[in-house]
Nucleic acid binder design. Structure first.
Ligand SMILES: [Mn+2]
Ligand SMILES: [Mn+2]
Ligand SMILES: [Mn+2]
Ligand SMILES: [Mn+2]
Lengths: 224, 224
DNA sequence: ATAACAACTTAGGTTAGTCTAACAAAAAAG
DNA sequence: CTTTTTTGTTAGACTAACCTAAGTTGTTAT
């Protein structure tokens, strides 16, 4: 019978960062992780030693970082808790999708399997979070959805907005102000070749021009 | 314009412990606080220095400890978050009253005023937690309810169970097993003078004998 | 009043998690 | 193929939160 070693919140945040930068499976350069977390390289470096010691990451000097199977599973389960929380906050507590990330960043570390089990039941085992990101299952398995960006679409294509790439409050408020939310149907009318901006028509006939930066952050799926 | 200094989870736990041992206003001996928190005296001692430095407690060497007004308010607001959380877990997430304390112990430290505001709204500004303890208001003011213990009641008195003194999982499971929950009406039939145990009759005619230890933990109010 | 004991404080050590400064390796530029 | 720049590592310092061991103060018991 093994003892279940609990990781600190900080360790969990490092694991999650690596997961998000690698989809769990690729490698990532230390610098990118340190920037993602907002810590300096020596902090990253000593944490990698600890996590390597615990066999949650594999890392040899001057080489990129990768999660081990064990590390990947732990990270996926933290992300599961994060996304379940976001869904719960939106669906059961009346939060807007732009308000939930910071709170979920904290609640994901709550030590209580039952708490997240209850959330999951209440929500009916949701498969996506409020931003369209997939929720890993209770074993840490993720159904990878590889939706294309709106910016990669062609003219006249009819699309449905299924996820956003970026959950920053500013960006989501920008979308709110324009009544752009998940599930929205749209058609690409025109693509400006010199700046990559797109004119799109929404289901309710509204027409808007979206900058390339915005189009890069909207994930879509073709319809009809 | 003042900057709002955030306290660490640990600092919050110390403040809360002192509050619970003093009702916010009395003094308490360092030893009692250290035992309540499960830390050794030197840990308590150095934390008292920090909190005194921050003007949240007043403490001079070899004297008992007291919260300052500032410290009392902060502590009451943490207790508010704790009890709101317990209520939310029971009322909106289907937890039993015996399951919520440990989770609330963690969630009380979540940094998000909006999160607790939403909880409060959803619950309709509850005045008590699932164990009958009063929930401080948003200014940290508490309506002190001084319910007597069942053990202090006289024979033939009709009573309603309004709170429990102790929220340990074991005790609450003991009550669950006997279908004893808040609101239950009961009558004291008989008091054993040599061990302080009581025979009580519940509203549904069931009759039980409760040990003094149990009767000490049940808070009641007279009816009719 | 003095001894014994419990409560409290001080000194100093540990681990987690961060940082800056200095150095080493790898990658990019010339 | 050097030189420069960027990336990564090591060393060492700092704070928060804990501990043990040793000494002090205050309180009870004789
Ligand atoms: Mn998020
Ligand atoms: Mn987090
Ligand atoms: Mn509680
Ligand atoms: Mn707590």
């Amino acid at each position: 019978m093994y003892f279940y070693r609990v990781n600190s919140n900080t360790e969990e945040n490092y694991l999650k960062a690596i997961y998000l930068l690698t989809d769990g499976i690729r490698e990532v350069n230390p610098k990118d992780v340190s920037e993602h977390l907002g810590v300096k390289m020596p902090s990253l470096n000593s944490m990698m030693k600890r996590l390597a010691e615990k066999e949650l990451v594999s890392h040899t000097s001057y080489k990129p970082i990768k999660l081990t199977d064990k590390g990947r599973k732990i990270a996926a389960l933290i992300i599961r808790k994060h996304r379940l929380t976001e869904m719960f906050l939106v669906e059961r507590m009346g939060f807007g999708w732009e308000e939930v990330h910071e709170i979920a960043e904290q609640i994901e570390h709550i030590k209580s399997p039952l708490f997240f089990q209850k959330m999951n039941e209440i929500l009916g085992s949701p498969k996506q979070d409020p931003h369209g990101s997939p929720i890993p299952d209770a074993n840490g398995e993720v159904a990878e959805m590889n939706y294309p960006k709106l910016s990669e679409s062609k003219e006249n294509q009819k699309l449905r907005l299924v996820a956003v790439n970026n959950s920053s409050e500013d960006f989501l408020k920008f979308l709110n102000a324009r009544d752009i939310s998940l599930g929205l149907e749209l058609k690409v009318l025109d693509i400006e070749s010199f700046d990559g901006s797109m004119s799109v028509e929404f289901a309710d006939q509204r027409t808007q021009t979206l900058s390339q930066i915005v189009c890069d952050r909207l994930l879509v799926t073709p319809i009809k």
